[in-house]
Design a protein around this nucleic acid. Structure first.
Lengths: 156, 156
DNA sequence: TTTCTAAGGTCAACATAGTTGACTTGAAAG
DNA sequence: CTTTCAAGTCAACTATGTTGACCTTAGAAA
């Protein structure tokens, strides 16, 4: 989880024939996701971190004092899958964990200053990509993008 | 690659506080990608297949007689990583591989009827999701979505 | 007080998807 | 005949996830 920093490929969009009207949209979703996360992932890799660490930092930044159980639910992964990246972040002192005064059962997670810094920088890379794209299409285009993505996200 | 069919979680979008203006967009990209691929992945799982198999089928459907080398380049993965899913598809007779008459070195890949059927169904699930979302926002919204995604995809 | 329950933590085994590196094979080209 | 190159294979590894089983801790209830 923190050793090699492999490939770092840029992977230009391959242009292949379209069989259907919507093929371009399918490919754009794939390359869009990769395009948004690529620079953030490269930054995170320099710290020996990756996507799951970022997801944890992202959520804790927005829900300070979140419990482990809630975090598991929000991230949609198992407790065991959360365990390793979470412990790495605690070891690296990007997160603190304390028991709440009243609800002594749960632990409350917070970001340290280092954690906040890292979360911000990684998320900034992603926001920068989105922001530049939004600038090209104006506020109405951005709103339409949000509407489409919302419909897709809620389609299940 | 073809045994258990785990979790199949639906994972509703978690609504967490927004620290920045564009946080909603970051989250929509994540949930959008998942929303588009979820039903296709569920279908593929019933066949013991998954995303990498679909990616192979998708490309070969659109570039019949593609060589292994080109496929590697288009998919952006290593020859060794391609090997297992590709062989499974050959064993399952979803793909055929033959040597070309003139360029006898390279192998040419094609979909069998079964391969075409599977590729179509899986891609249909994805197109259906996108199509319904596009219907809600109209052609101008769809065009804006494409423009934003194109800008994001090409941002590196 | 003892017992039950819920949250958290840990360990083992496994699946999947990728990586490098080191080969072999088979056909084309010199 | 030898070299070159595409393809194929084997091993070892990393990373991210999954189940299942089990333990610890602490609050709640009997």
């Amino acid at each position: 989880m923190q050793k090699t920093v492999p490939h770092a490929a840029g992977l230009h969009r391959a242009s292949i024939k379209k069989l259907h009207d919507l093929d371009a949209a399918l490919e754009l979703m794939y390359y869009g996701w990769r395009g948004m996360t690529l620079s953030a992932d490269q930054y995170l890799a320099t710290l020996g971190l990756s996507r799951p660490h970022h997801r944890i930092l992202y959520v804790v930044a927005r829900q300070p004092d979140v419990s482990i159980g809630s975090l598991i639910e929000i991230l949609g992964i198992s407790k065991q899958a959360l365990n390793r990246p979470l412990n790495l972040l605690l070891e690296r002192k990007m997160l603190t964990s304390r028991r709440s005064p009243e609800q002594h059962r749960s632990k409350l997670l917070r970001l340290t200053e280092a954690g906040k810094r890292t979360e911000q920088r990684a998320s900034d890379y992603e926001r920068k990509v989105v922001s530049e794209a939004f600038d090209r299409v104006g506020p109405r285009g951005a709103a339409a993008w949000m509407a489409v993505m919302g419909a897709i996200a809620d389609s299940n």
